[in-house]
């Protein structure tokens, strides 16, 4: 699977993917300190979305995405409780 270059595209598609298959979709964050690389992956085992970065500013954006996913996963895909 190719990496998605645009952050906005990645977030939009990953949220859509989760909302389509809430119980099958997982969100993986892979961090390698020695290389300073961060890879985000969202997949339902059919579609796989990946985003790779070495920029600190993306880590800040990722924090927002983490919060979106925590909320959707704990409260329900539509954000309800």
């Amino acid at each position: 699977m190719v990496y998605i270059e645009s952050w906005d595209e990645f977030t939009k598609r990953s949220v859509d993917l989760f909302q389509a298959e809430p119980l099958k979709t997982r969100y993986v964050m892979k961090y390698r300190h020695c290389d300073g690389k961060l890879v985000l992956k969202v997949t339902d085992d059919r579609v796989c979305l990946k985003y790779k970065t070495d920029q600190l500013q993306d880590a800040k954006k990722m924090e927002k995405l983490n919060n979106i996913f925590f909320t959707m996963m704990a409260r329900g895909p539509k954000g309800k409780s």
Binding site: Y31, H33, C34, D54, Q57, M73, A74, R75
Partner: peptide, 27 residues
Amino acid sequence: LSAKDHQRFQMAYATVLKAHMDALKKR
């Protein structure tokens, strides 16, 4: 994480990440 736990957890988690992801490049 239950619906009650997640908010507190996600803040603490963000703090852990911020503290350890210091190998990434500045803007």
